[in-house]
């Protein structure tokens, strides 16, 4: 193997990406500033149990802005607002169900990671079961056929 000669272009490229990074770093505060500056105080919890309840609830709710993150994970502005809303409703003594209903009334079933079983979600809930049954039936038929084949071969031999 011939050792590769020193490649100035590689260094060049590296330097260029460094510059890009620096430019991005300069732009970043401007991008952050594009969001309104209304500071939210971090949520405080009275007990570990309350915190656990909050986190379990937030993990089950979808962030509507960034649709593949949960409300617990997202740092989007709306997610922060909604976390605050959930926290406040918990403090006011609302049940988990009431809090979920509050969000579904505004954002639709989509906010729930576990959608309720209803007319438009039946396929979602039943299809896996049906597929499993279809697969089992297929395997069963195959086994039955092969066994019949083996049996008939065995009969021929004797």
């Amino acid at each position: 193997m011939i050792k590769r000669p020193f490649a100035p272009w590689r260094q060049h490229r590296l330097a260029r990406s460094c510059w890009r990074l620096m430019a991005l770093a300069l732009l970043l505060p401007a991008m952050v500033a594009a969001q309104p500056a209304t500071p939210r105080e971090p949520l405080t919890f009275e007990s570990p149990a309350e915190q656990a309840r909050f986190q379990a609830l937030a993990a089950e709710l979808r962030c509507v802005v960034c649709q593949n993150q949960s409300l617990a994970d997202s740092n989007a502005m709306l997610a922060q607002d909604l976390r605050h809303e959930v926290w406040e409703m918990m403090r006011e003594g609302h049940s988990d169900e009431a809090i979920k209903r509050f969000l579904v009334e505004r954002y639709g079933d989509f906010v729930l990671y576990r959608p309720p079983v209803q007319a438009n979600t039946v396929v979602l809930w039943v299809a896996p079961l049906l597929l499993l049954l279809a697969g089992a039936a297929l395997v069963g038929v195959n086994i039955y056929r092969r066994r019949a084949l083996l049996d008939s071969e065995g009969e021929e031999e004797t």
Partner: peptide, 14 residues
């Protein structure tokens, strides 16, 4: 709607 509370009631995402 400074704090966005009414926007939440309207289901405004962004």
């Amino acid at each position: 709607d400074a704090d966005g509370r009414t926007s939440i009631d309207f289901g405004v995402v962004a």
